[in-house]
Nucleic acid binder design. Structure first.
Lengths: 115, 115
DNA sequence: GCAATATTCAACCATCTGGTTGACGGTTTG
DNA sequence: CAAACCGTCAACCAGATGGTTGAATATTGC
């Protein structure tokens, strides 16, 4: 968790990592379960989780031999504030967001439409 | 302007590019003027502007031998919506944003505090 | 204790990124 | 027309990124 904006935005730039965050929105998950829907190796997922953790976007807690991953939405605050300043965006349109998540969830890392 | 989220977030991940966007927030600028406060070469700035344009975050218009760069804040909308969904952030706190811009403007690409 | 499970580490690879320099193509201006 | 200016292009480079595989480290269950 170093330079908030640099690490947060570059963490968010990868579709696999955004898909992981979307999954964690539903509930905390073990690393193996996070990896399950993706075709890439567990080690690759572990790296992605490390990047998300460094950016402060998730936290990881070891209980027994399982590591639980938890979304940390506060880390998005700085980035969100920065962005909103450019567009005077309305507070989020939750309907649009729901539709959006469907496309994100539909196919975790395969690009799809994405607005 | 391909996958909106991928290109937008990765464009925003670079501090030089965020500094450029911040400068363009004030007014449209010619490429040479955009480059002026930075120590890197004009060609490097030209590349950054290309990346910002590909992400749809700016537009470029040639008038005579000068190319004018213009902020296109709409491109941030999708990314902003995506992010707000994770934190249910309040509509932007403009005071925080002002303080934030000061640190961004203080030293264009040198990291500084940044929240 | 041993085997299976959960996760990371280390080495490696191909590709992308951000920077450089020098040459080039338009556009003014003298 | 020639010189100066604006910006991009092309080739190159060092370092980061995202992926792989195989070995290593905990922890659990039989």
């Amino acid at each position: 968790m170093t330079q908030t904006l640099d690490t947060a935005f570059s963490a968010l730039a990868d579709p696999t990592r955004r898909a992981i965050l979307t999954m964690l929105l539903e509930d905390d998950m073990a690393v193996t379960d996070v990896a399950e829907p993706f075709q890439i190796s567990l080690a690759a997922i572990s790296k992605h989780l490390g990047i998300l953790a460094d950016a402060g976007l998730i936290s990881r807690e070891k209980r027994g031999r399982v590591i639980w991953c938890k979304l940390e939405p506060d880390a998005l605050r700085a980035a969100s504030v920065w962005m909103q300043g450019f567009g005077q965006f309305d507070p989020v349109d939750l309907d649009a967001f729901e539709r959006f998540l469907e496309t994100e969830l539909a196919d975790p890392a395969e690009p799809g439409v994405h607005l």
